[in-house]
Computed example of a mutant assay.
Amino acid sequence: MSVEITSMVAADAARCAELESVLFPGDDPWSERAFLSELAAPHNHYFAAREGGHLVGYAGIALLGRGEAVESEVHTIGVDPAAHRRGVGGALLNALLDTADRHGGPVFLEVRTDNTPAIELYNREGFVVVGTRRNYYQPSGADAFTMQRPVLGAVNQA
């Protein structure tokens, strides 16, 4: 079955909150109300992944700044465990990055330091670790890497 990526709508918020509670049980999962709040912010763009009409994943990004100071920040990516290792997370990340590329600037995100599959996905898409945030996720106290994908076309300067 193929995955369809669409814009998230308010009716998706309850399912996203349900997935959050499965995916992030030790770290204050987002509520339905939190998703609705994020959807309402004009600088945020959220996507839903569907298989056969059933929501199996979600992702969101904030487009920040103006002019020379533009950047984007990945807020979240979550995929139903039953749909893991089938390209859903990659498809969602591609939707986020396409949106960020139209906005311009670098893209940032935080990821648990022990989330190897996500880190590998981000590395494949050009992200590099630029820092570590100790005790970032609460209440578990898990650490996070801050990762950045440089501006497309930027040349590394040694």
Rank of each mutant, 00 (worst) to 15 (best):
D27L: 07
I77K: 00
Y122A: 01
P42W: 13
S31L: 07
F35N: 12
H45W: 11
L152I: 13
T132P: 12
E73H: 10
V56F: 03
P25W: 06
A82K: 08
T146F: 02
D28F: 06
A13L: 09
T116I: 12
E18I: 08
L92W: 00
A144Y: 04
R134L: 13
Q148G: 03
E125L: 07
S7K: 15
D114L: 15
N94E: 11
Y122Q: 01
Y122N: 01
I5E: 03
G67R: 07
P106K: 12
V22W: 06
V111K: 03
F145L: 07
H54P: 15
S21N: 10
A95F: 05
V56S: 02
A95L: 07
E18R: 09
L23A: 12
A69D: 15
Y137P: 05
D12C: 05
A154C: 03
E32S: 08
F145G: 05
T116H: 06
E71D: 15
S72P: 04
T146R: 10
E120R: 09
A69I: 14
V111D: 05
V70Q: 12
V155F: 08
F35M: 13
L152D: 13
F24Y: 14
E38I: 13
A10P: 13
E18C: 08
T99L: 02
V79P: 01
P25Q: 07
A158M: 09
L19S: 06
D98L: 04
A41K: 14
A48W: 04
Q148S: 12
E18T: 15
P81L: 02
D12L: 14
G90E: 00
A118P: 01
Y46S: 09
N135W: 09
E32D: 09
S72W: 01
Y136I: 03
I61W: 01
E4R: 11
N115F: 00
A91S: 06
G105M: 05
P25G: 12
Y46G: 08
G153D: 05
V129H: 01
T146N: 07
H54T: 12
A17G: 04
G26H: 14
G60E: 10
A34E: 11
L97M: 08
A10R: 11
T132I: 12
T76H: 03
V151G: 07
S31E: 10
I61D: 02
G52N: 09
E120G: 06
V88R: 00
Y58C: 14
F127N: 00
E38T: 12
R15D: 11
G131H: 06
G105V: 02
P29V: 03
E125T: 04
M8W: 11
E73G: 09
D114F: 09
G65Q: 07
T116Q: 09
R102H: 14
I77F: 00
D143A: 13
G131P: 05
V130K: 04
T99G: 06
V56M: 02
M8Y: 10
V22H: 11
E18Y: 08
Y136S: 06
V3S: 03
I77V: 15
C16Q: 13
E71N: 11
L63D: 07
G153Q: 06
M147K: 02
D143K: 13
P106T: 10
A118D: 00
R134C: 13
